[in-house]
């Protein structure tokens, strides 16, 4: 059966899975890189992005009659705004008061925020625990490549992941905000002495990370048209692992880690369904044992 594992279709399947991981992992890794906080609620920002696009689709489609490209653009804006806004609010009220406390207390708070968002969405009657069918915002097409097939959504996912990766790299490397972000990530106190408004930089980091999660939620909803309040848990966890695999804090690393995970999961599942379930974690452990800082992670001095 080996022949059936490494065929073109399975490569496409792996890239599809990997690009969703990549979209989530980008925001995850950026926030970690700058604030050094595992933002457990990131998967829930992703879920909120999906619900925001779901809601705005129906609002603008049925009430205001928007269609096609305009509608897709409006929906995109809403997913970005929702993701960014919820990230900003979370940062302001849950993480900021703990900024100079031991970082593990922020981590526990992040877990609390994540639980709160999930349970609240599930309990809140207008949303509720049921599965919602995500609308087809753009017409879905299948493109044949020999005996294999790829959907236009897969291409969009891969494209958006690449664009966002490049955009984020440019932002962090070459803009004043990016420079400030890097300064904050290296030394908050020194950055403050240099006249950088540390809290403002961190706010923007969360807003951008949340906006990325929002976009990921939208694309995930389009690709896998089923949304529910707990949809962020699994992809969030996998994306985080992908980010660690690539070297957490490293932007291209997150994308590389995500595609390695996506492809590995696909090939492993195709080989043996039992293997597919645990492979992500097995790879992770192997990589970290051999190279603890991840694939592209920079070697840093001990941070204790």
């Amino acid at each position: 059966m080996m022949g059936s594992i490494f065929n073109v279709q399975q490569v496409i399947n792996g890239l599809q899975t990997g690009s969703i991981y990549a979209l989530i992992a980008l925001g995850y890794t950026m926030v970690y890189g700058i604030v050094r906080l595992i933002n457990f609620a990131h998967g829930d920002f992703f879920m909120i992005g999906a619900y925001a696009s779901y809601g705005s689709f129906f609002l603008f489609n049925s009430l205001l009659g928007a269609k096609g490209g305009t509608l897709a653009f409006i929906v995109l804006i809403f997913s970005v705004l929702a993701g960014g806004a919820v990230a900003a609010v979370t940062n302001r009220f849950a993480y900021r008061p703990l900024r100079y406390k031991p970082k593990l207390s922020s981590l526990i708070t992040a877990i609390g925020v994540s639980m709160f968002i999930e349970y609240f969405f599930s309990a809140f009657p207008p949303i509720g625990p049921s599965y919602k069918a995500f609308p087809e915002i753009l017409p879905k097409m299948q493109i044949a490549i020999g005996s294999a097939t790829i959907s236009n959504y897969t291409l969009i996912d891969i494209g958006v992941a690449a664009v966002l990766m490049i955009g984020l790299t440019v932002l962090v490397k070459w803009t004043p905000l990016g420079k400030a972000m890097r300064a904050v990530s290296q030394d908050k106190d020194a950055a403050k002495l240099m006249g950088i408004d540390v809290e403002r930089v961190i706010s923007w980091t969360f807003i951008i990370g949340g906006a990325f999660a929002g976009v990921a939620g939208l694309l995930n909803g389009m690709t896998y048209p089923r949304i529910f309040p707990y949809m962020g848990i699994q992809p969030g966890l996998k994306a985080f692992i992908a980010a660690v695999l690539g070297g957490i804090g490293n932007i291209p690393g997150a994308v590389i880690g995500a595609y390695i995970m996506g492809l590995a999961e696909t090939f492993a599942s195709a080989y043996n369904s039992l293997l597919g379930e645990g492979i992500a974690f097995a790879i992770l452990i192997l990589v970290l044992l051999v190279r603890p800082r991840g694939i592209l992670g920079e070697k840093t001095a001990d941070k204790i």
């Binding site: 379930e277 974690f281 044992l289």
Partner: peptide, 28 residues
């Protein structure tokens, strides 16, 4: 043993991975 090489968040994620592997094995 991995804790000898890993610190902080990396160790956290590896132990998380081990926990999930144990769970997956039991499932199967």
């Amino acid at each position: 043993f991995p804790s000898l090489r890993l610190k902080g968040d990396y160790l956290a994620i590896v132990t998380l991975g081990f926990g999930e592997i144990i769970r997956t094995m039991l499932n199967n």
